[in-house]
Simulated assay, not measured.
Amino acid sequence: MEKKIAILRGINVGGKRKILMTDLKSMLVEIGIMNAKTYIQSGNVIFESELKNLELSLQIESEILKKFGFDVPVIIKTRAELKAAISSNPFFTSDADMSKLHLTFLNKKPSEKDIESLRSFDSKEDQFEIQGENIFIFCEGKYHQSKLTNNFFEKKLKVGATTRNWKTVLKLMELSQD
């Protein structure tokens, strides 16, 4: 079975759309997902499955809506996809300040037209690079003060997005190795 990582968008942020990780794990067991491990309260789950990523995303989204009563976008990545993303980060070097690095996961590859339109955006001190279904971000300041938000990328690229800081990305990779 293949290791997968579910990345949920917008849960447990500011006391809204609250889902306890124990409840999330129980829900996943109810729909047949076994060996699930969660990491921090923001909705990161490592598990094994033979199902396709899109099928899993839709299944988990549907079950969250049914059980908790709100829409939560879910992006699934395989361990191999996460590993490839980590090795492709143009801003990650041995001396990089990891607190300035972030990875925005997209639920599908944006159109070339939308990518080209986005490339003309000047984000001042923050930088980004799109590679397939990933956007690598370098924030000179704090991420929460950046214009390079999930909503920004979703509007410009017409795809779903969720972002994790680099420390979380690396931890998800580490946890998926077990």
Rank of each mutant, 00 (worst) to 15 (best):
S94Y: 13
L101D: 08
S87L: 03
P110L: 09
D97V: 08
K108T: 08
S88T: 04
H102C: 06
S94I: 11
L101C: 13
L106F: 07
E81Y: 01
S111R: 09
T93A: 09
A96K: 10
L82T: 02
S99D: 15
P90F: 00
P110H: 11
S99Y: 15
I86G: 04
M98I: 15
F91S: 12
S88N: 11
E81C: 00
F92V: 05
I86Q: 01
F92N: 07
S94K: 14
T104W: 01
H102K: 07
S99P: 08
L103K: 08
A84C: 07
L82K: 01
P90E: 02
F92L: 11
A96D: 11
L106K: 06
K100F: 11
N89F: 06
N107M: 07
T104M: 09
K100Q: 14
F105Y: 14
N89T: 09
S111M: 12
A84N: 07
L103S: 12
K109D: 08
N107E: 00
S111E: 14
K83H: 11
S88F: 02
M98V: 15
D95Y: 11
I86S: 01
L101M: 12
N107Y: 07
K108R: 12
A85N: 06
F105C: 10
T93M: 14
D95H: 10
D95A: 10
A85D: 11
T104G: 07
N107F: 01
K100T: 13
K108C: 10
F105S: 06
S94L: 13
A85M: 08
H102T: 03
P110N: 07
K108F: 09
T93N: 12
N89D: 15
S99K: 15
A85P: 04
S111C: 03
M98Q: 15
A85K: 01
A85E: 03
K83M: 06
E81Q: 00
S94Q: 14
T104I: 07
S94G: 13
D97E: 14
N107V: 00
S88M: 02
S111P: 09
E81P: 00
H102M: 12
I86M: 05
F105G: 01
L101A: 00
